[in-house]
């Protein structure tokens, strides 16, 4: 365990050193602040608290932004060390290969945690202190922060898989962008396209739920938009998650699988890799 922290702290220090963490905090904080200011504008008609509105808009944007941040953190972390030659030296030290991967993972998730906690958390504190907004529905907001970290962890793990598979950093960068497009844009487009073309109704509700569920980004959306009553009322999709039999545990479970599977594959490939 001590080894893991030594390796993780190195990544965190790198993140602080190259202003990565600072940039992410500012980006996420500014976004959350802007959206919660916008969220204060609509009133009355749907009887949503300001925070619920913020959760809707912020999670809709996070689903694009968090994967991007996570991939940027991780795509380089293995192939970069292979290329520079630092990995070779590291592996002659008394660390196991799984410790190298898990140490990096711990470090990168911590960076994301710091960025999200400070960015999103800071924004909401600023809002309540300075504009006197209510904290009703804070549970949904905290749940959004937590699930954002989980979503980020998914893409950190996917980034490692890319990083261990490719031979050059440039390829890793390209592949990471492709991965982001697929998970965040293309998959949903294909799904809705198929639904539109599906005149014979081959895709029933159950199949559709499954198709939604297997995508980590869609799981994240459903988790944030439909699990809390206030939010789902405001989003106009009240109750669809429970109707489709999706519980918070199931949704988080799916996302966890998306963390574990790429990490395991990365470990297996890395374990066999010759330097």
């Amino acid at each position: 365990m001590k080894m893991l922290w030594v390796l993780a702290l190195k990544e965190i220090r790198d993140g602080l050193r190259n202003r990565w963490i600072a940039a992410a905090i500012i980006l996420l904080g500014a976004l959350a602040l802007a959206l919660s200011l916008l969220g204060s504008a609509p009133t009355g008609s749907v009887k949503a608290s300001d925070l619920d509105i913020t959760v809707i808009s912020l999670s809709s944007l996070s689903v694009y932004l968090i994967p991007l941040i996570a991939l940027m953190l991780s795509f380089d972390s293995l192939v970069g060390e292979f290329e520079r030659g630092t990995m070779m030296l590291l592996l002659t030290y008394p660390v196991a290969r799984w410790q190298v991967i898990m140490g990096k993972f711990l470090g990168h998730v911590s960076i994301l945690f710091i960025a999200i906690a400070a960015g999103y958390g800071g924004a909401i504190i600023i809002m309540t202190v300075f504009s006197g907004g209510s904290l009703d529905g804070w549970q949904a907001y905290v749940a959004m922060m937590m699930s954002s970290i989980v979503l980020g962890a998914v893409f950190i793990a996917l980034g490692y898989l890319v990083s261990v598979l490719v031979k050059e950093r440039a390829t890793a960068a390209g592949t990471a962008i492709g991965l982001w497009l697929v998970f965040v844009v293309i998959y949903d487009l294909l799904l809705f396209g198929a639904l539109l073309l599906d005149k014979d109704q081959l895709i029933n509700q159950q199949l559709f739920s499954v198709l939604m569920l297997i995508s980590p980004t869609d799981s994240y959306r459903i988790f944030n938009l439909s699990l809390f009553e206030g939010v789902s009322n405001a989003a106009g999709i009240a109750g669809i998650a429970s109707e489709a039999g999706m519980s918070a545990a199931l949704l988080l479970g799916v996302m966890s699988l998306w963390i574990v599977a790429p990490l395991l594959m990365t470990l297996v490939i890395f374990q066999r890799r010759e330097l």
Partner: peptide, 23 residues
């Protein structure tokens, strides 16, 4: 990574050694 502790007894200076530049 069979026996990690064994590497406690090793020291290695690679050809054209590379380090983490930002540290």
């Amino acid at each position: 990574s069979a026996i990690v502790a064994q590497r406690l007894a090793l020291g290695y200076l690679p050809e054209s050694v590379a380090f983490y530049e930002a540290m």
